[in-house]
Design a protein around this nucleic acid. Sequence first.
DNA 1: ATGGTTGCAAACGATTTGCATTCCC
DNA 2: GGGAATGCAAATCGTTTGCAACCAT
Lengths: 176, 176
Amino acid sequence: MATPTMALPLSTQAEQLKERLLDTLRQRGLRMTPQREAVLDVFFTLPEGDHLTVEEIFEEMGNQPQAELTASVSLATTYRTLKLFVSMGIIRELDFSEDHKHYELIRNPEAPHHHIICMDCGKTAEFESPEIAALVERLAREKNITVVDAQLKIFAECANMVDDDGMFSDHDSLKK
Amino acid sequence: MATPTMALPLSTQAEQLKERLLDTLRQRGLRMTPQREAVLDVFFTLPEGDHLTVEEIFEEMGNQPQAELTASVSLATTYRTLKLFVSMGIIRELDFSEDHKHYELIRNPEAPHHHIICMDCGKTAEFESPEIAALVERLAREKNITVVDAQLKIFAECANMVDDDGMFSDHDSLKK
DNA sequence: ATGGTTGCAAACGATTTGCATTCCC
DNA sequence: GGGAATGCAAATCGTTTGCAACCAT
């Protein structure tokens, strides 16, 4: 058994997630389809922490060379599938105040992470925060609510494209 | 001279804000118009902490009885004006993961506040947090960024419409 | 077989924009 | 007077939906 701190190989992670997906689908009387698998696969194709737009996910599938891994999926189905996955807690919907949403895989549901968005260059950085986790937990108790997700968004200007620790990833957020 | 902790009368607040607006407009070679004043007035007509949609702001102006205070403003101009005000730091754009944005007056730029959004009933609650303020400040220093705004959004389910301290205000967020 | 799923294209809804007209400064 | 601002309607653009065909269970 791997310890919690030991990162699992991607393939195993993917398998586990697909199991989870399949279970939830069955519970709801829904079905597994090549399209749904294709969308899920996209998130494993890309580096962790990436948050893609629907358009990007759609194109990613169209460009996939291996026909076995990803079937052709229509835009409409892509939308439908993403919505479904969000409702199942498999991916998270992000909003960077743009005209479109971003989506990211929830690898560890217990560790929601937060974003810094540069309003000039549009890059984003992510970070986790025990402080916020504690705060959210306290609020949940105080107000008697069940927290589904919590996200801190910091809109900022990263003077000179600061990239001190390689955290900033390239995205098109908040551009104008 | 009023102390910082003493709340200013609304009318004075409004005057001050209009001054600020006028100054910024002049700096940019822009003009004051009855439409812009009308939009600004809407935010003073309503209770503090309200976050309105464009549609609501638009209708609010149409219903205004006093012709002096609010002229008729087209939807297009409402959009244009809101965008302008946001760029001027006079109002804040909020995103509750709905299909439309919300706007609120920034009464105190130093005290950004955060939101809890109930995914079931769509109500929202607001709160401030010194913890987050401190965290954001630390991050700003560490990453050498200039923070423009920071918002924590907590998506939750408020069991039984909990309204323990009257914080929840009625909004249509995240419905469905 | 029999609902859940998909693709397609049409429909939608929020927001933006071109352009002629109006009106601050 | 002259450029900024407005109103109107048309245009955009992301997202949703109706419906017939399809396919997983």
